[in-house]
């Protein structure tokens, strides 16, 4: 697989470390009353779809940026690649 890094262009997926579902960006509020249940779901449960999947890849052997890669888990085709910091900013996070 080749990942089209937004800053560096096409890079071999072997340069990256995989973390999993991009929803891991959305860390729950630790002060919320239901924090225990929210963290259980955040940490352990996954949608795990067969088809389009948004996921986090870390460019460990490159510029060390976190990417959100939209990839098809049935074909391994990569549809789009964004910087995870841009995605977090769009969601109103202060990064």
């Amino acid at each position: 697989m080749m990942i089209n890094h937004p800053l560096l262009g096409l890079r071999d997926a072997a340069e990256f470390v995989y973390l999993g579902d991009a929803s891991l960006i959305n860390r729950p509020d630790r002060d919320a009353p239901d924090a225990a249940a929210a963290f259980y779901e955040y940490l352990h449960l996954r949608d795990n779809p067969a088809g389009t999947h948004r996921e986090l890849w870390y460019h460990e052997q490159g510029d060390r940026s976190w990417l959100v890669v939209t990839r098809n888990t049935l074909t391994h085709d990569i549809e789009s690649v964004e910087l995870a910091s841009d995605v977090a900013r769009q969601q109103g996070r202060d990064v």
Binding site: M1, A13, Y18, G20, D21, N48, A50, H53, E55, R71, T73, L74, T75, H76
Partner: peptide, 10 residues
């Protein structure tokens, strides 16, 4: 090491 349902690897 990444989510896959493809029954083939890289």
């Amino acid at each position: 090491g990444y989510n896959s349902y493809a029954q083939r690897g890289n």
